[in-house]
Design a protein around this nucleic acid. Structure first.
Length: 597
RNA sequence: GGGACCGUAGUUCAGCUGGUUAGAACGCCGGCCUGUCACGCCGGAAGUCGCGAGUUCGAAUCUCGUCGGUCCCGCCA
């Protein structure tokens, strides 16, 4: 016998058919002479009825009635079974509206137990109740849960749609090596010792960055790949040591072209997968604007609470804290915590605490009430100025204004963080909402105080904007790049840039980054050389597919859309990787562990 | 490297101002039950209170350390 149908696909139309189903025992309801089993497979659940008196009449082909009864009685959760029987409409009044197949049931005439199962450590149920560590240890059981499978099915459809879109737009899927070379800059590499070349190491790619640029030099014109990337850094809810990128590179296009093409792809995806219209063009914010309005380069546009500058108003007060900051060229900005004027002193203290842990020296507050304002700093301001402050925040009675005066960096960090916190706390984030945007015109470089040198904000192959190239020699920090980030619901989901395709400019950037010519030649001489052999103007983008899948499936963590994720310590709770290896293996690799064992 | 939270039957949790034999629900095991669908009813088993040390006459409860999990900062071009 062979399976004829998936459980979840059966409907009234199948009534009368003799079918063979296979699956897992989801739940059993044993009434003695009649036993109900909910049988589950990937497509859903169907009720199977073992009516033992009925079987006695019909006569089971392979099992004597008593054996049939014994067998069905012995069924337990998660047993794997094969049942044969006739699909029938349920008796009037016993239909179950809750499930897809609730109008019919399988009247079993034959049962084979394909495998028994231990009692699972947690129930294979819709509601998440087991601790995540237990779910990860028994990931195969967790992955049986319909709500979990749904996420992976959606992720599959996401990849499939992406592949179709890329294909339709002339992109070629080309694989690049996993065993490659460690390059300076960027994240810590995972290293792989070479057995054949003692003392040398491959590195797992942080991204196929250099290879995809080389493929452009090769003339493939449009490349893409859904590819695993590896970064040996600490984990977060949205960061795993291995993750999947949709990696894209193209020749002879400007950034506006790729942004438009990607908008089409993304809006197609959301229409297909979520039946949601994300209409292009998406908002485009310059880095400067994103920072000054939201205090971050990845703003969550699902709610307002924008930052407002009050330095001009603060300048009219004798409040020394504000005046000092202004004198030092710092910023004074605020945010309207809508409706929080009713906050108690301790609730406000908690906000102050939040601000100071983010680096602020203090947090000034001002309650707007029916009577006027209430604030420790109100005495420093005239009525007229207070009114202007209220107007600037469109503050109504009942609102609480919060101010930070500090360096630009601190002000953005603190208020950007508070804005997110308040957005969540005030319930301003509506579920099922998707707010995409592009952030453009990133600075090319920033200064690393610790290393005392410039570092690339995006990566060292990012092209500066043409009109800013002269500033490379005079004011490098003012140079803007041709980089762009795709941000969705406050999460950095994609990023890319137009690359440098002239070796001269590339060398100049390396020099600025403090990478010596010898080092550059050693580490990525192959790229510099390739750029001299007719490299076309090119650029690209990469999307974090796990992050995109997590957002689309409304998941808290990318672990929910990765079949076998690792814990925050980088451990796989199912396999217990990483683990010690045989000393013989180490010897072959010319490796000795410095870790005391 | 740092901060915060969590760890008690198989599971989810209660118990925590120190004091009889550590409880509940679900699950599990046995029995009864012909229309249930989170079936119901009766009965039963089930615990190194993460681990170690300390304080105490006495620790699940207090203290310190440690292990594990989660969130965050640093880190992640």
């Amino acid at each position: 016998m062979k399976r004829t149908d998936y459980c979840g696909t059966l409907t009234k139309k199948d009534a009368g058919r003799i079918v063979v189903l296979t699956g897992w025992v989801h739940r059993r309801r044993d009434h003695g002479a009649i036993i109900f089993i909910d049988l589950r497979d990937r497509e859903g659940i169907v009720q199977v009825v073992f009516d033992c008196s009925d079987t006695a009449k019909v006569g089971a082909p392979h099992a004597a009635p008593s054996q049939f009864q014994d067998q069905s009685h012995a069924l337990r959760s998660e047993y794997v079974i094969e049942v044969c029987g006739k699909i029938a409409e349920r008796p009037a009044g016993t239909e179950n509206q809750e499930i897809q197949t609730g109008e019919i049931e399988l009247r079993a005439t034959d049962l084979t137990i394909l495998n028994r199962a231990l009692t699972p450590p947690f129930s294979i149920d819709e509601e998440v109740e087991a601790a995540e560590s237990l779910r990860l240890q028994y990931r195969y059981l967790d992955l049986r849960r319909p709500s979990v499978q749904e996420k992976f099915i959606l992720r599959h459809r996401l990849s499939r749609s992406v592949r179709r879109f890329m294909d339709e737009n002339g992109f070629l899927e080309i694989e690049t090596p996993f065993l490659t070379k460690s390059t300076p800059e960027g994240a810590r590499d995972f290293l792989v010792p070479s057995r054949q070349n003692p003392g040398t190491f491959y590195a797992l790619p942080q991204s196929p960055q250099l290879f995809k640029q080389i493929l452009m030099v090769s003339g493939f014109d449009r490349y893409y790949q859904i590819v695993r990337c590896f970064r040996d850094e600490d984990l977060r809810a949205d960061r795993q040591p291995e993750f999947t990128q949709l990696d894209i590179e193209f020749s002879f296009l400007e950034s506006t072209d790729i942004l438009a093409l990607m908008e089409t792809m993304l809006s197609d995806l959301f229409r297909e997968l979520k039946k949601i219209d994300l209409l292009p063009p998406f908002p485009r914010l310059t880095y400067q604007e994103a920072m000054s309005r939201f205090g971050t380069d990845k703003p969550d546009l699902r709610f307002g609470l924008e930052l407002k500058d009050i330095a001009d108003l603060a300048a009219h007060s004798p409040f020394k804290v504000f005046l000092d900051v202004i004198a030092k060229g710092g910023h004074i900005k605020g945010i309207n915590a809508v409706g929080l004027a009713k906050s108690s002193r301790s609730e406000i203290d908690a906000l102050v605490q939040e601000a100071t842990t983010r680096g602020a020296k203090g947090l000034a507050w001002l309650k707007v009430t029916e009577q006027g304002v209430e604030s420790p700093i109100a005495k420093f301001f005239t009525h007229a100025i207070l009114n202007q402050i209220r107007e600037r925040f469109s503050a109504a009675p009942g609102d609480l204004l919060l101010f930070v005066a500090d360096s630009e960096k601190v002000v953005y960090e603190v208020l950007g963080g508070l804005r997110l916190l308040l957005g969540q706390r005030l319930g301003l984030i509506e579920k099922g909402q998707f707010k995409p945007l592009w952030v453009i015109d990133f600075p090319l470089l920033e200064y690393d105080d610790a290393e005392k040198r410039y570092v690339a904000i995006h990566h060292p192959f990012t092209a500066p904007r043409d009109e800013d190239i002269p500033l490379l020699d005079t004011e490098p920090l003012r140079v803007r790049s041709k980089a762009y980030d795709f941000v969705l619901n406050g999460s950095e989901v994609g990023g890319g840039s137009i690359r440098i395709h002239q070796s001269g400019l590339q060398s100049q950037i390396f020099e600025l980054l403090g990478i010596q010519k010898e080092e550059a030649d050693l580490k990525f001489g192959f790229l510099l050389q390739a750029l001299q052999f007719g490299a076309p103007p090119h650029g690209g983008i990469a999307f974090g597919l796990d992050r995109l899948a997590a957002i689309i499936t409304c998941s808290e963590s990318i672990r929910d859309v990765i079949a076998f994720p690792k814990t925050q310590k980088g451990i796989c709770l199912m396999t217990q990787a990483p683990a010690q290896v045989d000393s013989k293996q180490l010897k072959e690799l010319h490796i000795r562990s410095a870790y005391p064992s």
